[in-house]
């Protein structure tokens, strides 16, 4: 059972190689299943990160695909319709400006936000329809929890 019993003659001895093929097979099958599930849902859920210049460079192919954009927030452009819970703002990068529409409760940090990560789809008219937004603040807070 332990090193203290190593010399015990009564102890049944079986060495590591004692695992038969069928257990190893079982383990492989299990790992295969987990790996497959992982791979599969990874394929359908992977979301690419784009900067605005990358986004505009391949705008036509990206329409309708789920993606993430990360850019500076143009604070002056924020329009928060609280009655209908529609939040509109522009993300800017160089000469590019991307209008974003988010339906839902605006994050509390919106007004003090510096940059925004938005996940969603680009529609045909060039407006980004966000499903979730993550606001990043300029502060030193190391931990700025994610908000949906």
């Amino acid at each position: 059972m332990a090193s203290v019993l190593q010399n015990s003659p009564a102890k049944p001895v079986a060495r590591a190689s004692g695992y038969s093929l069928k257990y190893i097979f079982g383990v492989i099958v299990l790992l295969g299943v987990i790996g497959f599930v992982m791979f599969n849902s990874f394929q359908s859920n992977a979301v690419y990160y784009y900067t605005l210049s990358e986004l505009y460079a391949q705008q036509n192919e990206l329409i309708g695909r789920t993606l993430r954009v990360n850019a500076s927030l143009d604070k002056a452009s924020i329009v928060n319709d609280q009655k209908n819970l529609i939040l509109k703002f522009n993300l800017i990068e160089g000469e590019h400006a991307l209008p974003v529409v988010y339906r839902g409760v605006a994050p509390d940090t919106m007004s003090s936000g510096e940059s925004v990560v938005a996940e969603g789809k680009l529609d045909g008219s060039g407006v980004f329809q966000a499903d979730s937004i993550l606001v990043k603040c300029p502060s030193k807070y190391e931990k700025s929890p994610e908000q949906y």
Binding site: S41, F42, N45, V47, Y48, Y49, E119
Partner: peptide, 14 residues
Amino acid sequence: GKQITVAAPFFNQV
């Protein structure tokens, strides 16, 4: 050189 993320749906599905 390209960030690819997965969000809640991936973790839930797996």
